[in-house]
Design a protein around this nucleic acid. Structure first.
Lengths: 302, 302
DNA sequence: TAAAAATACTCCATAGGTATTTTAT
DNA sequence: ATAAAATACCTATGGAGTATTTTTA
């Protein structure tokens, strides 16, 4: 009773048998199925042999369905109905936009980009449905690999060759300091690194990127670590130190704490946002369309 | 959406796809199905192409099921389950005795033979189930031809070549006369034909057989026609005429009316009982077994 | 480097075709 | 005589095989 033993009959044989029942004759059934009568007869005979049951009584003028035949033909009809259902489901699924993309987004991007992204999607790709999930980079990559995500919006270019990626854009970092802080105008990295630097917890790529832009300068990191950008800015506002924000977060975060933001004198202080997806994903087309929309949304946010 | 268009995929392809899902790999799936990996890969690829949907994402170390794939594979599993059900039903149906034979019996035989036949069947073929239907000869033949009966017990040898038949036995006729009738001992056909002869309605073969045994003697038929043997005997008892009964009916019928029965001097006055069935019936074996039992039951009734 | 799937081919089993015969009405 | 299925035989599609290459972890 193992599920992978070969079945001794084919869907086509079932169709042929049903056509015989429907038409009451092998010749007419053959016509209905678009094959020659001997071909159909042979297949039905095979089916009967495979099942060990006589489905039809052949007479020269008519064909009768046997009693067991009637029962079996009924089951055959149901088998074919489910089989045909497959075609229907497949067609529906193959319809463009029928699939909801599951997209992971890192927490330092999600709250600031998604509102704009949602608007842009509604305008430019109204049929494209996206289900956003807020996950850190490592979690995104794992979920993508497991097939639980169709794409991920992260700030590090994925390195696995099985993951394709496309650059969505670059966004500058800005320094964020307490309102009362003496620094004004533009700041340089050396000055920043000299301050008590507040950073996010481990796992947030922004933490690593902030340290990265400081390069090999000696950084004075605060013993406190924020769990989110919201907290981070509030902590800066409370005078616990200074920090770095992606510019897209400024409008939302800097407004609700006693802080000021300062641009950098240095060039290239910021991060690149990428959209990554499994290279073999069947939704590559949709993902690329999503990427296109996100790029424009990002560019406009500038 | 015509029901007889060829399906673009095969049951085997569904099995292969399910094996891939089950094992998480094409190689392992191939092993499970007992085929070579390229063969299985090719079939799954065909299936995907036929459905226009990518079921799996191939990676060098693993295979992921796509989201639509999961839905479709679920349907495929159901399709295969119903298909497998066919095998089971067929096996159960192929079991000997699983079929209840539908047997038509003419009304002038049914009430007298069936009790004995039922006993004999219970003894000699306890697994053989028979559903008896009381029908006149023409109705039996029509129902048999339509496939509504598996066999018929009649008193005329069927003439169509598509109906096989076997002789169950011969039973003598006896004359039945009012208790007060002057005739005694054995009677001859000439004497019988000279009486007012009561017969059954048209359609009963016994009517024809009675006339037939009288051959070309001039018969004086009563204007009354009985609808059944019960009525016939009661009418004889009422003095409306004389008649003829098959001997098997005597014990039951002659006991409940003021009549006497008389044997015939002539030889060969009686009828032959036959069991007929469609020559191509799949239940020929069972029908022959039924015939065997009925023959002995008939012989013992003598 | 190793594991897994795809590719390239060869082969043959079999579904399907045509022509004909058989069968029963 | 005719309608319908079975039979005989041929063809060719395509499923399955082996050997090999490609891919990526």
């Amino acid at each position: 009773m193992h599920r992978f033993l070969q079945l001794p009959f084919t869907l086509r044989q079932l169709q042929y048998a049903l056509a015989v029942q429907e038409t009451g004759g092998f010749g007419r059934a053959a016509e209905l199925c678009g094959v020659a009568q001997p071909s159909l007869s042979a297949q039905v005979a095979k089916l009967e042999h495979a099942l060990g049951v006589q489905l039809f009584e052949r007479h020269s003028r008519k064909v009768l369905v046997t009693e067991v035949g009637a029962v079996l033909l009924d089951e055959m009809a149901r088998t074919l109905t489910t089989a045909r259902g497959l075609q229907g489901t497949a067609e529906a699924s193959a319809t463009p936009y029928a699939h909801t993309l599951r997209v992971g987004v890192i927490p330092t991007v999600a709250p600031y980009l998604l509102p704009a992204a949602a608007c842009a999607l509604a305008e430019q790709a109204p049929g494209l449905k996206v289900h956003w999930l807020e996950l850190q980079t490592a979690a995104c990559e794992a979920a993508l690999a497991r097939g639980e995500l169709d794409a991920m919006l992260i700030a590090d270019a994925p390195s696995q060759p099985s993951v394709d990626h496309i650059k969505l854009g670059w966004e500058p970092f800005v320094a964020v300091v307490p309102e009362t802080h003496p620094l004004t105008g533009r700041v340089d990295l050396d000055t920043l690194a000299a301050q008590e630097l507040l950073l996010l917890e481990d796992g947030h790529c922004l933490r690593d990127h902030t340290l990265a832009v400081c390069a090999d300068r000696q950084v004075r990191e605060s013993p406190y670590r924020a769990t989110s950008l919201v907290t981070l800015v509030q902590m800066v506002g409370a005078g616990l130190g200074v920090s770095v924000l992606p510019r897209s977060a400024v409008a939302v975060e800097a407004a609700r704490a006693p802080v000021r933001t300062l641009g950098f004198r240095d060039h290239g202080v910021g991060r690149t946002l990428w959209l990554g997806w499994r290279a073999r994903s069947p939704h590559t087309r949709l993902v690329r369309e999503l990427a296109r929309t996100l790029r424009t949304a990002l560019a406009e946010a500038d």
